[in-house]
């Protein structure tokens, strides 16, 4: 069964590129436009990995990850966080919230795929 990845980003183009790269490699992709939307999209379904932007409207990445890590069935789900620049403070907060893996924007699709494949295989 294909593994499911939730991509949370307010940029549609980033979601799209990530989705193309990941589905091409055999993953299923679920999209969410921000943290609030992401929480709704979880809906009890099995998510094997979350990719989340940090800076988003409504509920930002850090807040979203904090809530995710409280939810039963998702507390051990690996998270890759996306940052625009080297945001040392955000990174510290994110790590505290439970996001260990970081990818800096802009990234090549192949880089994202590599990061994902380190954590889960299709």
């Amino acid at each position: 069964m294909a593994k499911t990845i939730l991509i949370v980003d307010d940029s549609a183009s980033i979601r799209q590129v990530v989705k193309i790269a990941l589905t091409g490699a055999g993953y299923e992709v679920v999209e969410a436009v921000d943290g609030m939307d992401a929480l709704k999209k979880l809906d009890g379904r099995k998510i094997n990995l979350v990719i989340s932007d940090v800076n988003m409207p409504n509920l930002d990445g850090i807040g979203f990850v904090k809530q995710l890590k409280q939810k039963s069935g998702y507390q051990f789900t690996p998270v890759i966080m996306l940052t625009t620049e080297s945001e040392a403070e955000k990174m510290r907060q994110g790590k505290e919230a439970g996001a260990k893996a970081w990818v800096v924007k802009p990234f090549q699709p192949a880089q994202m795929l590599a990061a994902v494949t380190k954590l889960i295989q299709p």
Binding site: L49, Q75, F76, T77, P78, V79, G98, K100, A101, A114, T117, K118, L119, I120, Q121
Partner: peptide, 17 residues
């Protein structure tokens, strides 16, 4: 490490790349 969502086996598999 497991609680962080990091699975050592996954990294070992990635090593094949």
């Amino acid at each position: 490490v497991l609680r962080e969502g990091m699975d050592p086996i996954s990294f070992l598999r990635y090593l094949e790349s």
